[in-house]
Design a protein around this nucleic acid. Structure first.
Lengths: 104, 104
DNA sequence: ATGATACATAAGTGAATGCTTATATGTTGT
DNA sequence: ACAACATATAAGCATTCACTTATGTATCAT
């Protein structure tokens, strides 16, 4: 189940910060490691988990593999999260209608 | 870190379905167990984890403890998720402005 | 072809996770 | 006070997780 893959992927803080980095633009695995104190295999394993969750997609570019955020996973969270719109703070209640549209 | 507690809490499918049940209205621990094939201690442990993540709040009512969705945790996910609005599908792009408001 | 570089995969390990059974705590009715 | 009920906590155990080291695969430059 993809929903399970997504939440398991996001449960790890290292993977969340990788994902966050990619939200600022695509990067290859080596670039992602910069300033992160993480081994090459560990990064590769994290990326595989994010990929399986469709939170991230890969595109080979020669020796490098460029990673970027995959809207598929993001959309899936959006849909899951839309179920809880009733509990957002009052000032965001205006979102309701748009999100209701999204459910269809 | 609360963000970590939230994502770890949601990583378990049993906890997500408990959370989902509560989104349809507050229930006590016994009611939550109905139709779930889960032991009493397991339910109690799951609720403790959801409570720590501020996804759920408790309110004692006599012998029972009524649980309901806590907007604090939900709001926190909303804020985290707002960072990735750029990757939502195009037809939801209209949400941008409202969510931008939310960031402040 | 050969070496260097970028990344993936395999196998092993300690720590965390979700369950179990047993027991404790808190509340109600008698 | 006491039994019954609702929930929480403790301790133990099997599985999962995130890492490690070692090795494999793919691409580039010479």
């Amino acid at each position: 189940m993809i929903e399970n893959d997504i939440f398991r992927a996001l449960a790890d803080p290292t993977r969340r910060s990788i994902f966050e980095k990619l939200a600022n633009g695509g990067k290859n695995a080596s670039e992602l490691r910069q300033g992160m104190e993480i081994s090459q295999p560990a990064m590769s394993q994290h990326l595989a988990i994010l990929r399986k969750a469709q939170l991230v997609r890969e595109e080979r570019q020669g020796r490098f593999v460029n990673y970027s955020v995959d809207p598929k996973g993001v959309t899936h969270i959006a849909q899951w999260f839309a179920k809880y719109r009733a509990f957002w703070p009052a000032r965001v209640e205006a979102l309701k209608d748009l999100l209701k549209e999204m459910d269809q």
